[in-house]
Design a protein around this nucleic acid. Structure first.
Length: 266
DNA sequence: AGGTATGTTAATTG
DNA sequence: GCAATTAACATACC
């Protein structure tokens, strides 16, 4: 689940329901997810402070405490999510971190526990220290096109590389390339300007529509690959059976008809 | 049992 | 130097 649209929904949820509510208790249930902070110090950093601002860079979510001098950092790995809790709710079994207000609170859930929980004084410095590229919804068209066309390898791998572009993972890179009508292994350097711009526009539209759909595949507009991205899935445009290939260590889904490899550049 | 899964990182290979 | 692959991490599901 957690690519840019999912994390953006988590951010909005926390922003809407966490404002101005002092943290009373912090419970760490998965100590191995903590990076550079102990459960005790995390509790001390948050105790009786409100989270007053949220930010997102790629797949990382930041929640800033009042005073602007410290930020909780969350990364959701493969299976993480964020869930608000009402008063009296018991935290789910997969809760790795529970932050309780006077009434209710929120929980960081993860069944596969591959994410991270941390603390930083400055989200921008954190992003730079972790070598994150520009956020996929913040990068400008010209920068995007120039960087993509300078990549000799597969477009899909470039889209997914967090050091080049932050926020896109395996699922949404497939969707973007399907919407752009380009083969996942098309070399970035063999794209012309118009093709690179098509990918940029497809990326923005897919990410914005996914956020509007609250990152719920069932609520995406018609014509999306994502709900068909499974065994037996068919192209929503031409009806042909979808195919898979391996790229950058992941399984890519695509339509062999609508995303045929460029015959000229091979 | 073994393969796969929306993630990242380090080491390795071409 | 670049790009892709592999293995590792932890867990659930088929």
């Amino acid at each position: 689940m957690p690519e840019l649209p999912d994390v953006e929904i988590f951010r909005r949820t926390l922003d809407r329901h966490g404002q101005g509510r002092p943290v009373r208790r912090t419970t760490v249930a998965a100590r191995d997810l903590l990076v550079d902070v102990s459960p005790q110090s995390l509790g001390r950093l948050l105790k009786n402070r409100s989270l007053v601002e949220t930010r997102r860079h790629g797949k990382y979510l930041f929640a800033g405490r009042e005073g602007g001098d410290g930020w909780l950092v969350l990364h959701f790995g493969m299976s993480g999510s964020l869930e608000m809790m009402e008063r009296g709710d018991a935290p789910p079994e997969t809760a790795c971190l529970v932050i309780a207000f006077d009434e209710g609170g929120f929980a960081y859930l993860s069944s596969r526990r591959l994410g991270m929980i941390g603390w930083t004084a400055d989200p921008a410095a954190f992003a730079s220290a972790h070598h994150l590229g520009p956020d996929a919804l913040a990068i400008g068209r010209a920068d995007f096109v120039a960087a993509l066309r300078g990549h000799r390898g597969a477009v899909k791998c470039w889209l997914m590389d967090q050091e080049r572009l932050a926020g896109i993972g395996n699922v949404y890179s497939d969707e973007i390339l399907f919407q752009a009508g380009l083969h996942p292994k098309h070399a970035g350097s063999s794209l012309d300007d118009a093709q690179a711009e098509t990918i940029f526009e497809a990326m923005r539209r897919v990410l914005e529509e996914a956020v509007a759909a609250e990152a719920d595949p069932a609520r995406l507009p018609d014509g999306y690959l994502l709900p068909q991205r499974l065994e037996g899935g068919r192209c929503p445009r031409c009806g042909q059976a979808l195919d898979t290939l391996r790229a950058c260590g992941r399984n890519a889904w695509y339509c062999p008809h609508c995303q045929a490899p460029d015959e000229v550049s091979g």
